[in-house]
Write a protein that binds this DNA or RNA. Structure first.
Lengths: 207, 207
DNA sequence: AAATTGCGTGAACAGGCGTTCACTGACATA
DNA sequence: TATGTCAGTGAACGCCTGTTCACGCAATTT
């Protein structure tokens, strides 16, 4: 009843997930990931893989899920920093970029599969990103009193810019990353100013 | 001296490129593209492949080159239409989205390899995108009299947004694409307004 | 204590892969 | 007309792949 058995199973499951993570890199993407190699790295026989996942695809979707979870944790972390005061934009973008730097493999997976081969994968990643955007929209509506229509455009634009910059950061040196960070912050500010101007415009047309 | 031989060689070379294009799809990405399958579709023996390319990688880079070239030509064409009058932003974004809709395979390749496995690929795609951005910067500086610093931020932000929207368009239905187009146009306008506001701000600080 | 469950195994399979090699035969050159 | 070039070939290679199967054996249940 101690569940020694179940614990051992979970342990090898984690080993498989970790092995897959380790094998993911810039040169060796998910598509060219083999069941046998993953099993080898996890230290089990290829056949045992099937005790835990039906497919490599199922493993992959698990990775995407875990990546999304990590991203959401990041968001929460970022919001706490905002509460302490300081520039909302700077602290959010900085946190995001730190995540990218510290979780290269998982972010690369998310990006790859965002425009990747499997429809199910793409939808899974898209869901994660939408979640991200939705929280930003709520923030803009609640805290900054934007119209929902403008806030949606605004948030979507920011997410697109920041994710795209994150992608570039993967290949960048620390110095380049620093520059990329500042550029991105400046761009997000431009969008914020543009959204503000658009709001003013809408108001003047309304009256 | 008629060059019958050279013509035939070029023809099979094109057949190989076309075959690779045909095999590229949402489900079957470049990474899982096999020399033998490409040769089969091109109607030649696997061994003959080596008469034209040293690697699959070399073929892939050719695809990226051709894709980028096509995209740039299209946009230049679009800019000529602009000269005839009409909204710069609308016509550019529309042209871009039409390209994406009509060249799904090649655009998907560009996106995949932008965050893909091979460093050389990534750099090749990055070069294409930078080329793209550079042309936009020049336009903003020459025609719209922006400072180069602001123009660079501005152009980079636009390219990030538009490419990201293009990626989403790949999976979208015609109706969704229409909506995506309008959203993107609105976002680009927001960025334009933000850049304008930023320029005004910079001027008032200077004086 | 006996019976059952289920994770991990090693052998075996058919099939795909990239790449080499010596060769053919149509075209180009002299 | 004789000679050379070179795109295309088919067989063969060693290697890696996903998946099946029956089996052992420790944890669990009865």
């Amino acid at each position: 009843m101690a569940g020694v058995r179940a614990a051992q199973k979970e342990k090898t499951r984690r080993a498989l997930i970790q092995a897959a993570m380790n094998q993911l890199s810039a040169e060796h993407g998910y598509a060219s990931l083999s069941l046998r190699e993953v099993a080898r790295e996890a230290g089990i026989a290829p056949t045992s893989f099937y005790r835990h996942f039906q497919n490599m695809e199922e493993l992959g979707l698990t990775l995407v899920d875990e990546g999304g979870l990590a991203l959401r944790q990041l968001l929460r972390q970022s919001r706490q920093q905002i509460a302490k005061g300081g520039s909302i934009i700077r602290s959010s973008v900085t946190t995001f970029m730190e995540f990218v730097a510290n979780n290269t493999a998982i972010f690369r997976l998310l990006l790859q599969e965002k425009s990747g081969n499997s429809r199910e994968f793409r939808l899974a990643v898209q869901r994660e990103v939408e979640h991200f955007t939705a929280e930003l929209v709520d923030y803009l509506v609640d805290e900054q009193k934007f119209d929902r229509t403008i806030a949606e455009l605004h948030a979507d634009a920011i997410v697109r810019i920041v994710f795209s910059a994150g992608a570039d950061a993967l290949d960048a040196s620390p110095a380049e990353r620093k520059e990329l960070l500042e550029t991105t912050i400046a761009q997000v500010r431009i969008v914020a100013r543009g959204a503000e101007a658009t709001r003013t415009l809408a108001r003047s047309q309304k009256s």
